[in-house]
Write a protein that binds this DNA or RNA. Structure first.
Lengths: 146, 146
DNA sequence: CAATTCACTTGCATTTTACAAGTGAATCAC
DNA sequence: GTGATTCACTTGTAAAATGCAAGTGAATTG
């Protein structure tokens, strides 16, 4: 291995992003966290996507170690575990909205609410901010800060 | 399999995007096509990333069947094969620029030229357009439309 | 305190990947 | 013209990742 190769691996932003979330289950989990308000381990399983328990556990723990999610116990029922998105995860919102925009244009089967996609195309920054607000709401519901 | 599950799989934009490019080698190939002007099969191999020939062939053919790349023979040397990005691929530019922006902020090892990242943060639309221009240039060099 | 819920873990078969070695068509060198 | 070389893959096989089913152990409920 030359120094050059090592540098390529380390310095490249796309390569870094790939190592953190370029995987189909990672995409689905991040979608659930960013847009569907899912926080509990069980929520991710019951999402009807068919992820296996071992794979889910593996991805959640990797997201923990890459600083995307933090793991917590429910205060009232300690056996329930929830995961919260970090700031680093929240800053993925522009990427995922951009992905939704792209898929809506290129996949005939994709069904995105028209108001949503229209809002994004009219004012992306506002839609990013609104999405962030919805995420805070989901966080609050879980952490009991009503 | 319930109807609901099938609907979930088909209608979701993130899921669709995941099926098309959520894989580390796909990320690297798209980076090479969108930002490094790589077009020839051999270029992708020699990029120092260590992709195997069978995996590269597999990904390139999948990108063909998902309408991301088109495959062509060099007119002067028919044994040389090049791949061109489609419109669908060009519209991935906002996503990948957004990824670069994110990685630059969250990975200490990432090295993106400061002028580039500054340009993007100052005027994203212009940087998208400029990137598209560079891609046209790389396409032209390969198709001999000088 | 027995039964159940919950968040995983384990075992194993199947699929995907990585690495090395081919293959066949096209081109080059002489 | 032909033997060597380049080029874009394909094939074979071992190793790793995934998918599925069945645990496991701590916490909670009835």
């Amino acid at each position: 291995m030359s120094k050059k190769e090592t540098l390529n691996w380390n310095g490249c932003p796309i390569r870094y992003a790939a190592s953190v979330f370029a995987d189909r289950w990672n995409f689905v989990i991040l979608r659930d966290v960013l847009f569907k308000g899912r926080r509990y381990y069980g929520d991710f399983l019951d999402a009807g996507e068919g992820i296996s328990t071992n794979i889910l556990a593996d991805r959640l723990s990797k997201f923990e170690s890459t600083g995307i999610l933090t793991r917590h116990q429910d205060t009232k029922k300690r056996s329930r575990i929830y995961y919260l998105p970090t700031q680093k995860a929240l800053e993925l919102i522009p990427i995922f909205l951009s992905i939704i925009d792209w898929a809506e244009r290129h996949d005939e089967h994709t069904e995105v609410p028209e108001v949503f996609i229209h809002a994004y195309r009219t004012d992306a920054d506002k839609t990013i901010a609104d999405t962030k607000d919805l995420i805070e709401l989901a966080n609050a519901q879980v952490t009991n800060i009503h």
